[in-house]
C-alpha cells in the first residue's frame, strides 16, 4: 500500500470535484486528505489529494488526465502508507 500526493489543476466547473473523486474511488484508490482552492485570477481549481492504494499510481494519473476538466496532474511523492491508515 503506497500513499501519493496528487496536485491537480482543473477547470472550476460544478461537477469537477465529484468526477475526480468518482474516478479515484472507481480505480481502486482511497482518499486520505483533500484540499481545494479556487485560484481567483484564473478561476482554476487548485486541488491536492492524498490517496493510497496497492495499485500503481500511473493507472490513476492516466485516468485523471483524461477528464475533460482536468488540466494538469502532478504526483508530488510516494510514501509507504502506515498500516493503521
Amino acid at each position: 500500500m503506497k500513499q501519493h500526493l496528487l496536485k491537480i489543476k482543473a477547470n472550476n466547473e460544478p461537477a469537477t470535484m465529484e468526477q475526480l473523486l468518482r474516478v479515484v474511488r472507481f480505480r481502486g484508490f482511497k482518499v486520505d486528505k483533500i484540499s481545494m482552492n479556487i485560484l481567483p485570477q484564473e478561476q482554476v481549481m487548485d486541488i491536492q489529494v492524498s490517496v493510497k492504494s496497492k495499485r500503481p499510481i500511473h493507472l490513476l494519473e492516466n485516468q485523471l488526465k483524461k477528464l475533460v476538466d482536468v488540466n494538469q496532474v502532478f504526483i508530488e511523492h510516494a510514501t509507504v502508507a502506515q498500516a493503521h491508515m
Binding site: 460544478p14 461537477a15 465529484e18 468518482r22 472507481f26 475533460v68
Partner: peptide
C-alpha cells in the same frame, strides 16, 4: 442527470 451520467459518459 450529471451525477447519474458521470460514470458512463465521456463528459456531461
Amino acid at each position: 442527470v450529471v451525477g447519474l451520467s458521470l460514470a458512463v459518459t465521456k463528459h456531461s
